[in-house]
Computed example of a mutant assay.
Amino acid sequence: MFGEIESFCALVDRVKKFFKNHSNPGSDKELLSTRLVQLYEAHGVHRNQIPKVIGQGLTLYDVSTDERLLKKLTDKILSSTCQLFGINRDWLDGASDEIYPTYDFYKCPAKFEAFLSSLLAKSGSDGLDGILLSAVDSRVESVLILQETIDSINEKPYYRYYLCSGWFLSYWKSTGYITACVAMCWKNNVYVYGLYVDKATVDKYAHGNNLLDFGYDGIYQLSGIRWYPEDLALVPETYLKNINPEENQFGLNAALSLWFKLYHQGYLDTPYMDNNVELSFNDAHKKFS
């Protein structure tokens, strides 16, 4: 008897869900225009400013509600928006969870150098900044986010972001190559600052599946424990701080050997590099040899 009552209740629930969904079709789905507005506002453009950026005949009335905006969207508007912010079109269409592409420069300093040069050719060093987000637990993946200022509205900038992920500061080889990337940024007057944050924050921004919802303040609205990534190339204690020493100090020795390799290849040539830095890394290498 109890089984029959349970089956009847389940049937009633299914019927209720059916009528709820069909009486308001699409109510559980996000409008394409809603995503578009979220995208612009996350990158520093208010809803009412969207016509200034998109153009193409859009008016303030058109963007006053998501429903009105939906009627005005064209493939040209959607494609140009994705190109402007470096967004995956499938995400905007609701067909994918991946919002941003991610870039992997592990063991590829020359590839990063070319990538950075292409960004500088577009925006110049004044329009490019960076942040290295790391968890307090160095075994958690870190992410270098490069922020390109696209333009400004009423003296407030809006941005495009590039996610360079896959860095683990506990691994000597990974530390060496992220050091080279940061040093190349500084060499080209691209300021990179560092924050230690919680694991959830790094995970949120490292993989391209969440909007970088920094708004008008960009990466500078993030908070955490401040540190200076440029010191990776300049201060042995900072460079070695998070590295797993491994058996017989192998990790520390290998890290320092890699530092010298990158240094002699010219990848650590920052404005702050001098002979005293090389001497201090030599002393560190002798200590662990």
Rank of each mutant, 00 (worst) to 15 (best):
G3P: 04
G3E: 09
G3Y: 07
E6P: 00
S7Q: 14
L11I: 10
V15P: 09
V15T: 10
K16D: 08
K20W: 02
H22D: 02
N24V: 03
R35N: 07
L39W: 02
Y40Q: 00
G44H: 01
I50Q: 05
P51M: 10
K52V: 04
G55M: 11
D62F: 13
V63S: 07
D66Y: 11
L69C: 10
K72T: 10
D75P: 00
D75S: 15
K76M: 09
S80V: 09
C82F: 06
Q83G: 14
I87L: 05
R89P: 05
D90S: 15
L92H: 09
G94N: 10
E98A: 13
I99P: 06
Y100T: 11
T102K: 14
Y103M: 13
F115W: 14
F115I: 13
S118V: 11
K122F: 10
K122T: 10
S123P: 00
S123C: 11
S125T: 10
G127S: 10
L128D: 04
I131R: 07
L133W: 06
D137F: 06
S138V: 04
V140K: 03
V143Q: 05
I145N: 02
D151W: 10
N154Y: 09
N154L: 11
Y158P: 08
Y161A: 10
Y162C: 09
S165H: 12
L169N: 07
W172Y: 04
K173G: 04
S174D: 04
T175W: 04
I178V: 15
A180M: 03
A180Q: 01
A183D: 07
M184T: 06
K187S: 14
V192I: 12
T201I: 12
D203F: 11
D203P: 01
H207L: 12
D213Y: 11
Y216R: 15
Y220T: 15
W227D: 02
W227F: 05
L234C: 09
K241C: 04
N242K: 00
N248A: 08
N248D: 11
Q249C: 04
S257A: 04
G266H: 12
L268P: 02
D269V: 12
Y272I: 00
L279I: 11
L279R: 14
F281K: 01
D283F: 08
A284G: 07
A284L: 02
A284C: 02
H285L: 08
H285I: 00
K286E: 12
F288S: 06
S289A: 05
